[in-house]
């Protein structure tokens, strides 16, 4: 996954939710080791009682685009595809501008 163009990751989820919790945790595991120096990461963990609360994953990119991802429906592969799709356009722009 291209994480170069991410500037902010804000997520709130309960790890006890087998769907959204897993997806959000997998997303966080994909971020590089130095992610916290390049982007603002805000993780809010909900407890077991709140596991049915809708989880959120909000991303911000360098060009200012905000992405709100639906963790209930999307799996980690879908999220990766979404992020890569926008990151690739940014990459192309950067290459064209030199």
């Amino acid at each position: 996954m291209l994480t170069k163009y991410l500037t902010s990751v804000a997520t709130a989820f309960s790890p006890f939710n087998p769907k959204s919790g897993k997806t959000a945790r997998n997303f966080l595991a994909l971020l590089p080791p130095n992610a916290r120096t390049t982007m603002a990461i805000d993780v809010k963990l909900l407890n077991q009682a709140q596991k049915d609360k809708p989880a959120s994953l909000d991303l911000k990119f360098k060009d200012g685009k905000e992405m709100k991802l639906d963790l209930e429906k999307m799996k980690i592969k879908d999220i990766q595809a979404e992020v890569n799709r926008h990151s690739r356009t940014l990459l192309r722009q950067e290459e064209l501008n030199g």
Binding site: P15, V43, N47, Q48, A49
Partner: peptide, 15 residues
């Protein structure tokens, strides 16, 4: 990230 605990076979969340 702290996820939870297992205490004497029982599952506990962060709280």
């Amino acid at each position: 990230m702290f996820l939870g605990a297992r205490v004497e076979g029982k599952v506990f969340d962060m709280d």
